[in-house]
Design a protein around this nucleic acid. Structure first.
Lengths: 346, 346
DNA sequence: ACCACGGATGTAAGCGCTTACAGAGGTGTC
DNA sequence: GACACCTCTGTAAGCGCTTACATCCGTGGT
């Protein structure tokens, strides 16, 4: 608390070796491959480690072995369950593979490219979400010889990419809504904002086409609750007319649905609403929100796994890997209660 | 893709120096303190860095400067908004202070102590949540000379700790419910599960005492949705009787409330329900859930900040720092609609 | 009794940076 | 013209580990 502590910060492999009466090589061995050192010696070293509170300096090891044993993950932010789940999956798998994870959140960063460069400095490989980090920055990392996988982003040659299936489940979902007899569907959310969304809109269009109906243009709004509320207000004034809303995500769907209900409209009688993500709230609102569940944790796990394989010399997979999604039917689309019970969250 | 790449993985400070026709010291200088090197030289070096796609190896720097420029954060998990928000705050502040953050999630770890030891190896300081990591592990880190702050955990001498205020807001909240004329309140959640919860129960007790009423024993159940549902079922059978429920967190409150409603009971008429955390769902359910908002992001920011100060030689703060919380009144407690509008989330 | 061999440990050469210190030119002053 | 000063750059000594290679010693075979 006052004087420099002798133990702790001071202990190095040298002090341990000295204390145990062995060479530093032996100390290193008891840490890396305990079985090769004689039991007695091993114990003396272990004791020395204990009494000196020795904690190795990973940087020295990294330098010597020439890799970091760490993966970086760049996410836009962490509000809502989506990214959190992704991160959980990533962290879990990375840990299993003995890798630390260094997290970088893009919002709140004034100079993202710089932050990414910095990050690249301390990891063996990088996973980045969608288009959060600019292409040149990605290229830099790649050129420095560090594998990069992009999650739910644009697919580009030479960069491994993984994503959840969007288009065909969007088509199914749209089809489902159409089967409920809805005529004027609106897609709510900006397809240009992210590849995920454009895939969903593509499915929306496809479902219309296959019935020879003309899909409406997307309502290009952002994805936060405020945006949904504002849109609902514009529906209330008659600016937008629809009997079904296919929303780009649950936050949008929920905020719109709630606003409409608070204004006296009935969901799904007046207008059906469906979304994407199956957030917790979607189970709790009434009517329950029909939505699409993505294997978000799986995306994270897969990303960590691929990174590890790439670092270990694996070849980059040139086509995107897409994980299947599942439609969760509740009542907001017009289905009767008790129809299909929502499966428990995995 | 086939042959070892010349650029990238190969580039070191030496190759850059050679390519630019300067010494490695100069290269290091243009990276660390560009202003001290002559403009022409600097540019040549910058060009060399560019053409060689040089990315420094942070481990080498860490070794030379003798610190990692990274903070570790150990969290139980990441489901629900609570930990995610904490993490966001922590990451944001850490980044501002130039520190990377290495995340460790305790669930999914088969050998947590080992994971923590490993983590300690690559950071300058550690923030750990509550009691997720065992005391001996914490002590080890401390003895190795690395600062530790515990968030929302038991306070112990010598370890810095920070938390959100619990007892007095719990007392206020309980008091509020009592003022609505409720007579039989139950505290739902196990106080022994976490210091936060025991603080809340203490407030519950305190409010009763100050009115000379006898507080009920806590209903010791876990905090997941299932546990809440099961408890609600037991209320429905008459095993528990109450006209108000003070729940340890929103997940519990929401799952109980919903189950009760689905069974035909009215909230708040038959039973009032309040919770803690102000998760997103709490705004969306009807009636809106009365709850307590904690400055979760603030806890994270503060943790990162204190860590940084401790690493920079600051003295450890012997009493816990507690951040204020705020009660958010909605209708589940019995308040009329439109009474106090819920402030927007910060 | 001698030798080959294998197991346990030590020696020493890096890994890629940072930085104190020294040296080399230029400028300005008297 | 000599000298004191700057400014800019180079030299070299670590930072704390890992690991190939060398060494030492005890065994067992013959």
């Amino acid at each position: 608390m006052t004087i420099a502590r002798q133990t702790g910060s001071g202990a190095t492999i040298y002090s341990v070796a000295e204390h145990a009466g062995v060479s530093i090589a032996t100390v290193s061995r008891v840490i890396q491959r305990p079985e090769v050192v004689a039991a007695g010696t091993r114990q003396r070293v272990l004791d020395a480690i204990e009494t000196l509170s020795y904690v190795p300096v990973s940087a020295a090891r990294s330098l010597a072995v020439r890799h970091h044993e760490a993966h970086g993950l760049v996410l836009p932010e962490l509000s809502g369950p989506y990214y959190a789940e992704l991160l959980m999956g990533f962290e879990a798998r990375a840990a299993e593979l003995g890798q630390s994870v260094i997290l970088l959140l893009a919002d709140s960063k004034s100079d993202l490219p710089r932050a990414v460069r910095q990050l690249a400095t301390r990891v063996d490989a990088l996973a980045v979400f969608g288009e959060v980090v600019d292409q040149p920055s990605v290229q830099r990392v790649l050129q420095a010889g560090k594998p990069v996988v992009v999650i739910a982003g644009e697919h580009r040659a030479g960069v491994e990419s993984i994503a959840a299936e969007n288009t065909s489940s969007a088509a199914q979902l749209t089809e489902h809504v159409l089967k409920h007899g809805r005529k004027r569907l609106l897609f709510v959310g900006d397809p240009d904002a992210a590849p995920d969304i454009s895939g969903r809109y593509a499915g929306f269009v496809q479902a219309h086409r296959s019935r020879r109906r003309k899909p409406a243009d997307p309502v290009r709004i952002a994805f936060r609750e405020n945006d949904g509320t504002a849109f609902a207000d514009r529906m209330l004034t008659g600016e937008h007319v629809a009997d079904a809303l296919v929303c780009a995500n649950d936050e949008l769907a929920l905020s719109i649905m709630t606003r409409l209900q608070d204004a006296g409209h009935s969901v799904p009688d007046d207008v059906a609403v469906v979304g994407w993500d199956d957030v917790m709230t979607s189970r709790y609102v009434r009517p329950g929100l029909t939505t699409v569940r993505q294997p978000v944790g799986g995306l994270g796990r897969l990303a960590a796994e691929r990174l590890h394989e790439l670092v270990s010399g694996g070849a980059v997979n040139d086509d995107p890997q897409v994980l299947p999604t599942r439609i969760v039917l509740r009542q907001s689309c017009g289905c009767p209660p008790g129809g299909v019970p929502a499966p428990p969250r995995s």
